[in-house]
Structure formats: structure tokens, C-alpha cells
Write a protein that binds this DNA or RNA. Structure first.
Length: 401
DNA sequence: AATGCGGGGAA
DNA sequence: TTCCCAGCATT
């Protein structure tokens, strides 16, 4: 066991020394403001540092203090998060900021129970905030840390299992040098990001290579053990890009998604599921599809005539792969009834769902009081769209007038 | 314990 | 193109 203790001591000491030399200059490392640390940690969930940096800068510029965030309209927070993904992070972050204002006078709490109680803050982020912002000796075990520890200590447990994270937390807690929690936890993650990478780890420049058990065994390439996620299921959808006419000239029809579920409360172009297509890779249906879309729009209070099939788009979420076919429509003279918008496409949605899955129709029928709007390009600056619709609208931009 | 929830970068 | 990355909430 003496061997193990020495190996741990060596690990922590060498790692800290390496971090002092190698740490990156990141925007949220320039001061130790708990609010900044918190925002950065939420953004960094499932997201690389390079992607986060510009978002972090804009976010802090727009919401410099926790109070600013708490008081802002939710749409502005979502707009600031547009393109970053996992939008419940943004909504939870703001809800938690309001929590802090109400329960803690606007000051980020410095104890475990209160931090862990914040919306969107789980075991990892709790540890990250307490250690990085307050230098408290709490472990912060993310994917980087599990990869580093699984290799250095030759741990073959599947890191996708809940129990493995608990094990790693206990191990990580015991490695934190007294008084150095902030630097040590960041050092661990930095090593995982820069040296002990998922593929082709840079062992030759690793500060702890000499005692890395996986390296000694030649097992660094097969660790960590990780069960694979299910592949995303394909989904085919028909999208309507409706150009307004008359009082809606120069505008395009968009709608806001429901309060919960996929892309909650984000804006999008109207779309309905395509009926299931027989055969593998048969692609999207064409002629009848456009008619169904038109019928849906008509029932929604928008009379529109098809112009052309505009483009195809694909987008992969973690669990769904969207195949989209976008049709341009032109609003017809006498439409423009703005009350009653919504019911039509909801019906189309239900009927299409029935074609592809008769059993599921009950679940998709009733709801949908979706909010529809005719927007100008300038309105895009205020409404948050998922990337896939941004791509479509960007393609359309030259024609939008 | 299993599932829902985005998007980007590297091979 | 295809593959890989992976915290938190909910059920």
C-alpha cells in the first residue's frame, strides 16, 4: 500500500507543477468570480473550450452580474445561448440565478448543500464551483478526470455506469493536496484536455507518465472502458418556408416550440413529420408531401401556394437524426387570419403521425397552441433558433426581401 | 438504471 | 463522411 500512497503523492505533486507551467489563459480564469466560474462550468458541460470562449464573452458582456442574469427576459438568455445546444442549461442557469437572488441575497452560496440545490447543478458542477471558486476540497469528476484516473490507476470499470463516477469521486477527493483544490482539480481536467486525450494520448510529454499504470501495461489506448450510446433514430420532416404577401410582404412564417422537450421554447420554421418511407434510404416523399404541408398551413389560417422544393437539410441530435425537406410557399391574397393559427398544423402533425405510427397518434393530437409570427430579417436578432433552422434561413437570406 | 437533451471537431 | 465527446433532469 506504501507503493500506492507514493504513487498518489507523486501524481498530485507532478500534476500541480505541470499545471503551473501549462495552464491555458482562459477568460473565466482571469479572476475568481464565483458567478463567472459557474457560467463557464455550465457552458462547458458537453462542450469544448474553443466553442465556449466566444459564448462566454458575449454572455458576460450581456449579463455582467448574477443580478443582471436574474432580471433578464428568458428570451434574451436563450438568444445568447443560440447555437450552443442543450438549451435547458440556459433556462436552468437563469432559474438558478433567480434562486440565488431570492434565497441567498444574490451571492453564490459557498456550501455544498446550497450549491447542489441549484437548478442545472449536479455532482460535477457542485464540485467545480466549490473547488474552483472557493478552493474547497471537493472532487469535480467530469469525463476528462475519469479518463485520466482510469488510465493512471488502471481502472477498467465502465465509466458510463453511475457507480464508477462515485468510485472516481472518492479517489479524486483523496488526491487533492491540502489547500490546493482549485488548482488541482483544474490541473486534472487540463491534463485530460491537453495530454491524456481520448485518442492518441501524448504520453511522452505527460508529467505523470512514469507511474501511469495504463502506460506501463500498454493499456492506455483501451481505457477508459466506455459502453457505446445508441445511434440516433432517423426522422423525416417536411418544412414550410412561407413567404408573406400583402401586409406580410418581406416576412417569413415562424413558430415557437412548446415549453418542454426537444429545443424547448426555441423558434423554428413550421414542419410536420413525413409518413414513414418504405425501404432503406428511400429518402423523403415528394409530391403528396407538399400537398399535405399546404393543407396544414391552410387549416392553420395561412393560405399558401407551393413555389418549389427549396433544399434538404440534416441535423443530428444525440438521440434523433432529422432529415428535412424544405419547401418554399407563397402566401395567397386573402389569408392573414392570425387567430386560430396553430390548429391546422397540429392536425397535420397528428395525421402524419398516424400514417407512420397509428398507435402513437393519441399522444400527439390535443396539445399545440403554438405561437406563430411573421418575421423580418431584423427579428432574427431577437429570436433564438436552433442551428439547423439558422442554416436554412441563411441559405434563404439572399431571397428574403 | 435508462432515457432525453445539441452541436462541434477530429479521423 | 463517420466517429467521438458526455453532465443533468426526469422517470
Amino acid at each position: 500500500m506504501q507503493e500506492s500512497i507514493d504513487s498518489k503523492k507523486y501524481f498530485s505533486t507532478e500534476l500541480l507543477e505541470w499545471y503551473e507551467r501549462s495552464k491555458r489563459d482562459l477568460p473565466w480564469r482571469r479572476q475568481r468570480d464565483p458567478y463567472y466560474i459557474w457560467v463557464s462550468e455550465i457552458m462547458l458541460q458537453q462542450t469544448r473550450v474553443d466553442t465556449v470562449i466566444p459564448y462566454f464573452q458575449r454572455f458576460i458582456e450581456r449579463f455582467p452580474t448574477l443580478n443582471d442574469l436574474a432580471e433578464a427576459p428568458e428570451e434574451e438568455v436563450l438568444k445568447c445561448w443560440e447555437g450552443l445546444g442543450y438549451y435547458s442549461r440556459a433556462r436552468n442557469l437563469q432559474a438558478a440565478a433567480r434562486q440565488v437572488v431570492e434565497r441567498h441575497g444574490g451571492v453564490v452560496p459557498a456550501n455544498k448543500a446550497d450549491v447542489a440545490a441549484l437548478k442545472g447543478v449536479g455532482p460535477y458542477t457542485t464540485g467545480a464551483i466549490l473547488s474552483i471558486a472557493f478552493n474547497q476540497p471537493e472532487p469535480a469528476v467530469d469525463g476528462n478526470v475519469m479518463r485520466v484516473l482510469s488510465r493512471y490507476f488502471l481502472i477498467r470499470d465502465d465509466i458510463m455506469k453511475t457507480g464508477t463516477r462515485t468510485l472516481m469521486e472518492e479517489l479524486a477527493a483523496g488526491l487533492i493536496p491540502r489547500g490546493r483544490a482549485a488548482d488541482f482539480n483544474q490541473a486534472l481536467m487540463e491534463l485530460g484536455a491537453l495530454v491524456c486525450t481520448p485518442k492518441s494520448p501524448q504520453c511522452l510529454v505527460c508529467p505523470v507518465m512514469a507511474h501511469c499504470a495504463a502506460r506501463i501495461e500498454g493499456a492506455e489506448d483501451i481505457l477508459p472502458v466506455k459502453s457505446k450510446a445508441k445511434p440516433p433514430r432517423p426522422e423525416y420532416r417536411l418544412v414550410a418556408l412561407v413567404e408573406g404577401d400583402g401586409e406580410h410582404a418581406g416576412r417569413v412564417l415562424v413558430r415557437r416550440r412548446p415549453d418542454a422537450g426537444l429545443l424547448a421554447r426555441m423558434w423554428e420554421l413550421p414542419h410536420i413529420p413525413a409518413a414513414a418511407v418504405a425501404g432503406e434510404g428511400a429518402g423523403l416523399p415528394d409530391g403528396p408531401a407538399m400537398d399535405r404541408l399546404a393543407a396544414g398551413l391552410a387549416a392553420a389560417g395561412v393560405a399558401a401556394e407551393p413555389v418549389e422544393a427549396f433544399m434538404d437539410a440534416e441535423h443530428t441530435f444525440s438521440h434523433i437524426h432529422w432529415n428535412l425537406r424544405v419547401f418554399r410557399f407563397r402566401e395567397a391574397e386573402d389569408s392573414s387570419v392570425s387567430s386560430g393559427l396553430g390548429a391546422g398544423l397540429a392536425a397535420a402533425e397528428a395525421s402524419a403521425a398516424y400514417e407512420s405510427d397509428p398507435v402513437a397518434v393519441e399522444t400527439t393530437t390535443a396539445e399545440d397552441s403554438a405561437e406563430y409570427r411573421w418575421i423580418t430579417p431584423e427579428d432574427m436578432e431577437e429570436l433564438a433558433f436552433p442551428n439547423v433552422f439558422l442554416r436554412i434561413l441563411k441559405q434563404y437570406a439572399p431571397l428574403w426581401k
